[in-house]
Computed example of a mutant assay.
Amino acid sequence: MTFAEENLVGQKPVGLFVNDQDAVYVANRENGQILVWTNGSSTPTPIISTNSTNIWSIFVTTDGDIYADNGNENGHVNKWTFNATQNEIVMNVHGWCTGLFVDINYHLYCSSTNNHHVIKIPLNNGQTVPMVVAGTGCRGPVPNMLDHPHGIFIDNKLNLYVADTHNNRIQLFAPGKKDAKTIAGFGAKVRFILNRPTDIALDVDGYLYIVESQNHRIIRSIPNGFKCLVGCSGNGGATSQQLDYPQSMAFDTIGNIFRSAKINTMLRDAP
């Protein structure tokens, strides 16, 4: 089911978030707008102008604060407080944040793809210089290294999940640990080949969902491995059963999967 067309979300929508009230947030990279659909509306309102282009990722907290990547052009992450028209700089970065996440302790994480690491800062204390929590800053395939990471997810135990895109694997970093465990893809115990994973999410039951861009599909963990959910032919396309280089995904409260792509419009799949 098509949720939003190119005339609204642009040709390459990547930044996508759905909050616990089922409001859908999408960043239009071409014109620098963040569009918000609330209460099941077919028309986005409000539309937030960011004065930036190439927004790669967004995250919205439970109190309505919006965090948006502005790293490639301006070297920082911006925050829009709920119902405010002005933004503030909350993190200094070098290059895109291809994944953003705020954990239960209000730490903001950025997946810095060109720097091959994940960084974080505590929010609400004025600090803007982040610390590295995963990766060495050099690309590589060993447990303490990443290669162009993208999507990230932090669970309630503060475990950090990273879509290690160019290593074709999903890495799990326990709190305070520099060496990761590979839980999917190249090097994992369960053999399931990944091809450029770009986003990850956990559902309320702890199942892992992976957006696999180059295989044009979304997969999900099961007790003994993984299974494909959408795009299972592996061929990119625009039919109802196909994806075309999917980039990111999000759930609403009833299990619909929203997904964005470099070429497709923004779509929604029923649970």
Rank of each mutant, 00 (worst) to 15 (best):
W96V: 12
T182M: 04
P143D: 03
F153T: 06
N167Q: 09
N144G: 01
D103C: 02
A201M: 10
V60C: 02
I222K: 04
I121G: 04
D20K: 14
N19Y: 04
E73Y: 11
A23K: 08
A68E: 10
L208N: 03
V190C: 04
T198G: 01
K181P: 00
D244F: 12
D269M: 07
N264Y: 07
N7P: 00
P44N: 14
I47F: 09
P149G: 08
S52K: 11
L100Q: 05
Y207H: 15
N224Y: 06
I170D: 04
Y207L: 13
V118H: 10
R217M: 01
K79F: 08
E30T: 11
N72P: 05
F101I: 02
N115Q: 15
V90E: 07
L172M: 09
I170Y: 05
D147R: 10
G225W: 03
T98C: 12
D252I: 08
N144F: 10
I152M: 06
T61G: 00
N195V: 04
A174T: 04
K227G: 03
Y67S: 14
N224V: 00
H148K: 12
T253E: 05
G15R: 01
N125I: 09
I154Q: 06
V190W: 05
E5I: 00
D155G: 03
G237W: 12
H117Q: 15
I119Q: 14
G71W: 12
P149N: 09
Y209T: 07
H166R: 10
N167V: 05
N74Q: 14
G140R: 03
I210V: 13
Q171M: 07
L108D: 06
Q21P: 00
D20C: 02
D199P: 00
G206T: 03
S213W: 04
V26C: 06
Y106T: 11
T265L: 08
E88K: 11
L194M: 03
L229Y: 02
V93K: 05
A261G: 13
G135Y: 03
R268M: 12
L202T: 02
N70Y: 14
I104K: 15
R29W: 11
N124E: 12
F153I: 06
V211K: 01
G75W: 14
L243V: 05
W96Y: 15
N124L: 05
D65R: 10
T182H: 02
F101P: 00
Q171R: 09
G137S: 04
D147V: 01
G71A: 08
Q33G: 01
